[in-house]
Design a binder for these strands. Structure first.
Length: 455
RNA sequence: GGCCACGUGGCGGAGUGGUUACGCAGAGGUCUGCAAAACCUCGUACCCCGGUUCAAUUCCGGGCGUGGCCUCCA
């Protein structure tokens, strides 16, 4: 089985060849922890978790290193902390904790490492110093700026020409910049802001340098895969490339760049002003989206229904369908012990640039076979666990926040069966209608009557 | 204004130069006291206009629509 991935750098699918099969290395841009993560933030977390799982399967669990950073120094954090009158540490720790809980609830494995900017300051300062020494950056009015004109390759990821960008003329024109496109590596902090001592005075890092420094620190100069949302291609990833390759004499930072597509909500851009901004926490724990709570695995299944590079429309209908599917699988697999290995068809579909819709076609085929075959049930159970989609829940577990009085249901069923025994079918049908009204569906099987909650 | 994606049957969503994706919903059937589940059967889709081709949903050009980036937002 060979893994193929779409490389944004080349704009084509390429066979994946790791630098070192004994240590496959992936870096994904994590959150800036100033507010709860929204459902759009969940997409890269889920997508690259699936890739992480696949890589672990191919190369072995101990031979894959996955780094997802936490950015805990940033101007929006400073602003939000001031606004809420809490300390920066309090804000970033609290937000990071919720983020990690959300990620776990969505069925993601923890990354190998989750480094923080505040723990990477010596490396950040060292990398900036190297860039200055290499004549790729300059000091101006307490700032250190990357000298874009020194980078003949600048724009290779986003495929934009410097001249075009300047012509766009929406760049900040600061008088101390040599070139309008030059971006900040280090900026001065006043007494009210977090700051670190550096050769350029007390200050803090610019937006992009932290990822370059954390990547180098934990994965080396060149690693295999760098991932993130498509909106990060420019300027964030472009600037990361400029910084890292500027510090490493042109040696590439990553061989493969992967970007997930954008997310919309009910056909519209998600924004606070439109009132359709939805956080992961709200979906999981509050009855806000469709006035229901949603199980993390339902959200995960819904997210993976669309190929990661396609735009995805986050709708109520999508979540309902995902829940229906998951509940069906749960009825089939609740008591089943997993097989040793996941399905080969699923692995093959996954290996084609994470074609998760194809994966689902394979899963549905397996589910059809699993209805009559125990081996297929065990295989399906194992495959869904491998994907992080199912962990042995009962079907009703996916109806979060809905409660049914089981004793009352059992009582109605008993009365109905008594009526059926005396062929009083009118009464039996009346009792069924009562159950239906409660949201309960019943099935008369060979082993007696079973019931389930309708979704 | 510049650059870039996407537009598939009621819905979701892969894929392909000529042959059934798949799922949900829906219709018919077997089964059932009635149902449900299960199983069987059913949809001849690919934004518009040109072009290339024996043949285009699939390639090329234009248009329309939606969205993204260019304003430290995944």
């Amino acid at each position: 089985m060979s893994l193929t991935i779409y490389n944004t750098l080349a704009r084509e699918k390429q066979p994946f060849k790791p630098i070192d099969p004994k240590n496959v290395r992936m870096y994904v841009c994590g959150p800036t922890v100033y507010d709860f993560a929204h459902i759009g933030n969940a997409r890269p977390v889920i997508v690259f978790d699936v890739l992480f799982r696949l890589l672990r399967h191919i190369y072995g669990e101990k031979h894959v290193t996955y780094v997802r950073n936490i950015t805990d120094v940033e101007d929006k954090i400073i602003a939000r902390a001031a606004e809420r009158k809490v300390s920066i540490r309090e804000l970033t720790e609290g937000t990071a904790k919720v983020y990690q809980e959300d990620a776990l609830a969505l069925g993601n494995l923890p990354p190998t490492l989750e480094p923080r900017v505040t723990d990477t300051m010596p490396e950040i300062i060292a990398m900036i110093a190297t860039l200055v020494k290499n004549n790729r950056a300059y000091v101006a009015e307490g700032h250190v700026l990357f000298d874009v004109a020194s980078d003949t390759d600048y724009g290779k990821l986003s495929r934009r020409a410097l001249d075009d960008m300047i012509a766009g003329a929406r760049v900040e024109v600061a008088p101390y910049k040599k070139n309008p496109m030059d971006f900040v590596l280090w900026k001065p902090s006043d007494a009210t802001m977090p700051g670190w001592d550096s050769p350029w005075g007390n200050g803090r890092p610019g937006w992009h340098i932290e990822c370059s420094a954390m990547g180098e620190k934990h994965l080396g100069e060149t690693f295999d895969i760098h991932g993130g949302g498509i909106d990060l291609i420019f300027p964030h990833h472009e600037n990361e490339i400029a910084q890292s390759e500027g510090a490493h004499h042109g040696r590439p930072i990553a061989n493969y760049w992967m970007h997930n597509g954008f997310l919309q909500v009910e056909g519209e851009k998600m924004s606070k002003s439109l009132g359709n901004f939805i956080t992961i926490r709200e979906l999981l724990a509050e009855k806000k989206f469709g006035a229901e709570q949603w199980h993390g695995r339902v959200l995960r299944l819904a997210m993976l229904g669309t190929h990661y590079r396609q735009p995805i429309d986050w709708t109520l209908d999508r979540l309902t369908q995902a829940r229906t599917t998951l509940m069906e699988w749960a009825r089939l697999l609740h008591d089943v012990q997993p097989a040793d290995d996941p399905s080969g068809d699923v692995l093959a579909a996954l290996s084609d640039d994470l074609n998760t819709p194809s994966v689902f076609a394979a899963l549905h085929g397996l589910a059809a076979a699993a209805r009559t075959n125990a081996d297929d049930r065990r295989r399906l159970r194992r495959t869904l666990a491998f994907l992080g989609l199912y962990g042995g829940e009962k079907d009703v577990d996916f109806l979060v926040g809905q409660t049914i009085d089981a004793a009352a249901v059992e009582d109605l069923i008993a009365r109905r069966n008594a009526a059926r025994k005396t062929k009083n079918f009118a009464e039996a049908d009346r009792l069924r209608a009562e159950l239906t009204a409660m949201g309960v569906a019943i099935e008369d099987g060979a082993a007696g009557t079973t019931w389930k909650v309708m979704s």
